[in-house]
């Protein structure tokens, strides 16, 4: 399956801003984080198609995935 991955803040350093990635069917968000070499504890905010999900979440074809380190503002 193909998913769109968007990285933000410090996760962009040495990686990318936005990219389409091909993943094996049945991959979870945790599998994607491992492929990106991002520790699960560092991926504080993970959003798939606009909804916050955890590392166990199973991904689907064409998912849009946004991954953030711990951040806040306001």
């Amino acid at each position: 399956m193909v998913v769109e991955v968007r990285l933000f803040a410090s996760f962009r350093e040495g990686r990318f801003k936005e990219k389409e990635l091909e993943l094996p069917e049945g991959s979870s968000l945790g599998d994607l984080l491992a492929q990106l070499e991002i520790a699960q504890k560092d991926a504080k905010i993970t959003i798939v198609n606009g909804s916050a999900v955890s590392a166990e979440h199973k991904l689907s074809d064409h998912d849009v995935i946004a991954i953030f380190p711990p951040i806040a503002g306001g």
């Binding site: 968007r6 933000f8 803040a9 905010i45 946004a66 953030f68 951040i71 806040a72 503002g73 306001g74």
Partner: peptide, 8 residues
Amino acid sequence: VLVNVINE
């Protein structure tokens, strides 16, 4: 830094 979180 919040722009993208809130937008996404």
